[in-house]
Design a protein around this nucleic acid. Structure first.
Lengths: 128, 128
DNA sequence: ATTTTAATTTACGTTAACGTAAAAGTCAAT
DNA sequence: ATTGACTTTTACGTTAACGTAAATTAAAAT
């Protein structure tokens, strides 16, 4: 297995090292350490980082992201655990669907307004 | 024409009066004042407030919302103004479409994962 | 007329998500 | 071995979007 240093990840994802350490502060990533204390990140850590950044783009808070990650990261071997995860996932999925509907409606309204404006512009240009 | 007081709006939209005054501080709403200095909000102010809250739900910052509102609020009587507004609107529409695609992909991934989990759960229950 | 409720301004406090800087140790290259 | 780049911890600073509280004034209700 090979590792990434903090600056390698920081460059790859175009974020500061402070940001990466901050995610660790909040318990989202936990890299291993060399004897001297330097952080080393595994492929999995890198994947988690990717997830965090993606979650951020969707507007989720670090706390929400943490919740999701830790839930999907726990061992879901037990039936109870699996059921809980599915329940949580379905709740989140519902929220996502609602979000999509909201966005679709917004899109529709914007299109309507734009059409209206374009019509007006044409009228203006026709009367010149 | 009839007006709303700040607490009427605050109750209707379930936000604090501080919040409404803050939006004014940032230049988003500008109510008229009585002689004694009390704020009075028109129907239009109320509509703007609605827009702000909606924008917030979509994750826009107050600054972005301000930008949009003031653009659509300007007199678009001139052809140049109208063209500018349309251009801006089309840019925003493009961004919204991208956002929707992102959300749709997220939804798809969540559904896939959930299906996977459900399959596992069935297997678990079948082997009892 | 007086109590109660609502409004105003001013100003300091709070939280999330980092930025920035200092001091000190460590690794890589010459 | 020394320079320079990198890393660490500690800690204070910053911005947005309000919350909270105090002091004062005005409006509404009794």
């Amino acid at each position: 297995m090979n590792f990434y240093t903090i600056s390698q990840l920081s460059q790859e994802f175009d974020i500061s090292t402070r940001t990466i350490r901050y995610y660790e502060e909040r318990g989202l990533i936990v890299p291993i350490r060399t004897e001297s204390g330097q952080r080393l990140y595994t492929k999995k850590d890198r994947a988690v980082l990717k997830l965090i950044l993606r979650g951020k783009r969707f507007g989720f808070s670090l706390e929400e992201i943490h919740e999701m990650i830790s839930l999907f990261d726990k061992d879901r071997t037990g039936r109870k655990q699996l059921e809980k995860t599915i329940e949580y996932g379905e709740q989140k999925l519902k929220e996502v669907k609602e979000r999509i509907d909201d966005w679709l409606q917004l899109k529709h309204e914007m299109e309507t307004i734009l059409e209206d404006f374009k019509t007006r512009l044409e009228e203006l240009e026709g009367s010149e």
